[in-house]
Nucleic acid binder design. Structure first.
Lengths: 206, 206
DNA sequence: CTACAATTGTGAAAACTTACACGAATCAAC
DNA sequence: GTTGATTCGTGTAAGTTTTCACAATTGTAG
């Protein structure tokens, strides 16, 4: 009876949420329609309505959607009504940048630990946290109840660190490492390899 | 007669290329099969063969693929046999990190300009380039023949900067800004909003 | 109160993507 | 040579995703 909702639908919800928030905050709107939302996002109105229909009926015929209400519903669906502790693995330039990334905090993602195995980096202060030795990975992740990690390490150690993260209880990984990660089926991975994204685009550049 | 190749196929080619390179360099392999490649990437062998068949016949029955040859072919298909000049827009933490990102250079993406409008950042030295005033955007992009840009600016200025980039001749944009960008149909955009990626994953965390 | 415009939610159709399965080719072993 | 194990490329089937199009509902204007 429980309908399996396609991941491609889930992946659009944060984008709807982002735009709805912007419509409310930047444009001061209280309501919107699937047509308006779609126009702002390059998505058809039918798609938006179909996507939302997986979770309930949030709009009203003739009127559209009350933005605050829909935002609240989406945040509940996506489990964003709580805060999430996040670990960053790798304290290179990119690890630093992501640790400082303000939007994470605004959206309830608290980076509460950062790790590296370079003795020169261990102990370094970053805002309010300190770079920890990779040896303490399991201990800290367990203690801080960290379920999400951002992986910013070289490809050759990414799989082995992923295995350790999963064993320590991490359930979702955002990976910037240029390699496919083998994980158990209940573990989520999102990939973000900038080179791969650039290489897709060069195809279209004559 | 010219077959239109789906973007979803194109987007897998860089991943094949990445793994093929790794197989050659790390594991010293000279040949591979669609089955082996797929096992390393979590993709079915049929999918890989079908994808490649859009572009020609690169393998041999019974034997599989000669890695070096396939790598060379993929690089040609993706227009990676030349080098690309790239501009980074925004010299915050993330802009810095991406400018330093070594893998870009390894893959033929040369970051030859970085811009910001903060007087405190303009003039700052980053490796071998200097942070330029956003006012010089058009001039520099034209002079250096830059066709690709990495956008690392706040949402509220992202669209206006995108318009300027496109007018200046940029044809592909990798955007970290948390907003949908409206561009002409012949302009490529890749999105990489870390918050959106995290929010997709929290859906699956009970 | 009635007519009209806007908009939702959704079943059905269309379009797109992936997986199956098989003939043909290749190579190694005997 | 012949056999058997691999593997490719591909036509077709199956599965997934998007789009269409319409009944039902809501609000507005006269």
């Amino acid at each position: 009876m429980i309908e399996e909702i396609p991941d491609i639908v889930i992946s659009r919800l944060p984008i709807y949420l982002r735009e709805l928030t912007r419509l409310a905050e930047e444009e001061g709107k209280l309501t919107t329609s699937s047509h308006e939302l779609g126009k702002h996002l390059g998505i058809s109105s039918a798609q938006i309505r179909k996507d939302l229909s997986h979770f309930g009926e949030f709009g009203k015929q003739g009127t559209g959607y009350h933005i605050n209400y829909l935002v609240q519903q989406l945040r509940q669906i996506l489990h964003l009504t709580r805060e999430w502790n996040v670990a960053v693995i790798g304290a290179g330039y990119l690890g630093h940048a992501l640790t400082h990334y303000k939007a994470f905090l605004d959206q309830g993602f608290h980076i509460t630990a950062i790790f590296d195995n370079d003795p020169a980096k261990i102990g370094e202060q970053l805002d309010d946290i300190v770079v920890q030795d990779m040896a303490d990975l399991e201990k800290t992740i367990t203690e801080l109840n960290i379920k999400m990690a951002i992986l910013v390490v070289p490809a050759n150690v990414a799989q082995e660190i992923t295995d350790r993260l999963v064993d320590a209880g991490v359930r979702a990984i955002l990976s910037y490492a240029p390699i496919y990660l083998k994980v158990p089926p209940d573990i989520q991975v999102s990939y973000s390899d900038p080179v791969v994204q650039m290489q897709r685009m060069t195809y279209y550049l004559a």
